[in-house]
Design a protein around this nucleic acid. Structure first.
Length: 277
DNA sequence: TGACCCCTGGCC
DNA sequence: GGCCAGGGGTCA
């Protein structure tokens, strides 16, 4: 599931692939990915890639034609580079380079989104204006996290996934950060003390850094997996299995319509008295 | 603020 | 064969 790190990798890949090249033709399939946007406008998104920015899980691309695009990978969206003439399953949009190579936006489930817009408007679209702090672009200090999330009345994990507060965390990295910080996903944000906000901020940066370094120069993230498992994460997707730290059985619960995984021992709901401050 | 919906591959 | 995954938009 693309969260901030995967989108950042996509951004870097596009920059690499398009550097020194030119999109000579853009084509969009008649699919949901384009939502309300004029699909035909995508065909104007050509030329050299001038700028590739990311904010949260959104990519903002600007081209020398003057036309750009706002892209969201959704759950299964991905940019791939293929040789000329090679069919790509689930390709929803294509950029053809002067070399004949094709950059496909593939997205089997079509939760992704592409919105063509003139360069000057790409960064001002409503979806972008609504985003909160991006931990990589803006940096994220613990006071900022406390300000953005601390007043929320929703469970901590739900608040962390609220893109208008912190932009870029999804179900996986929110769960990972909470585990690293030793915080229960159902804690009320208002009950965290400063030490816990500091821990959580560090944990967010660590979780994102882990994902970004796991990628190592390739065009997609290859998480390092524990031997014998298919799951590289500390807590995400480990329901019913022993916690990697304390061997307590990992719990799962539904929050905001998403599954949350946590360890009731490492992430107690009631903060331990006297261990902080 | 929360429920519902979109969509389909993959897993049980 | 059926259910689950889930980001984000929309609507009550």
């Amino acid at each position: 599931m693309p969260e901030l790190p995967e989108v950042e990798i996509a951004r870097r890949s596009l920059q690499t692939w398009l550097k020194g090249h030119e999109v000579v033709r853009a084509h969009a399939e008649p699919v949901r990915v384009f939502r309300g946007a004029e699909r035909r406008d995508f065909e104007k998104v050509t030329g050299k890639l001038m700028k590739a920015d990311r904010r949260g899980k959104y990519l903002m691309l600007q081209f020398s034609s003057g036309e750009g695009a706002l892209c969201h990978l959704g759950m299964t969206g991905k940019f791939v580079r293929r040789p000329a003439g090679q069919a790509e399953p689930y390709s929803r949009a294509q950029w053809v380079l002067e070399t004949g190579e094709v950059i496909h936006f593939k997205d089997p489930r079509m939760f992704g989104r592409i919105e063509p817009a003139p360069n000057g408007e790409v960064g001002r679209l409503r979806a972008i204006a609504a985003l909160g702090i991006d931990p990589l672009v803006d940096g994220l200090e613990w006071q900022q996290l406390k300000d953005a999330v601390g007043k929320s009345k929703t469970p901590l994990k739900v608040a962390l996934m609220d893109q208008s507060r912190v932009a870029g965390l999804g179900n996986i990295h929110a769960a990972e950060a909470l585990f690293r910080a030793g915080l229960h996903p159902a804690r009320k944000p208002g009950t965290l003390d400063d030490a816990e906000w500091k821990k959580l901020t560090q944990a967010i940066h660590k979780s994102l850094a882990f994902a970004l370094q796991a990628q190592e120069g390739d065009d997609e993230i290859h998480y390092v997996e524990e031997p014998g498992t298919k799951n590289p994460f500390l807590i995400y997707g480990r329901a019913g299995k022993p916690c990697q730290r304390c061997k307590t059985k990992v719990q799962s619960m539904t929050q905001g319509g998403r599954t949350s995984h946590f360890c009731s021992h490492c992430q107690p709901l009631k903060p331990k008295k006297g261990t902080h401050r």
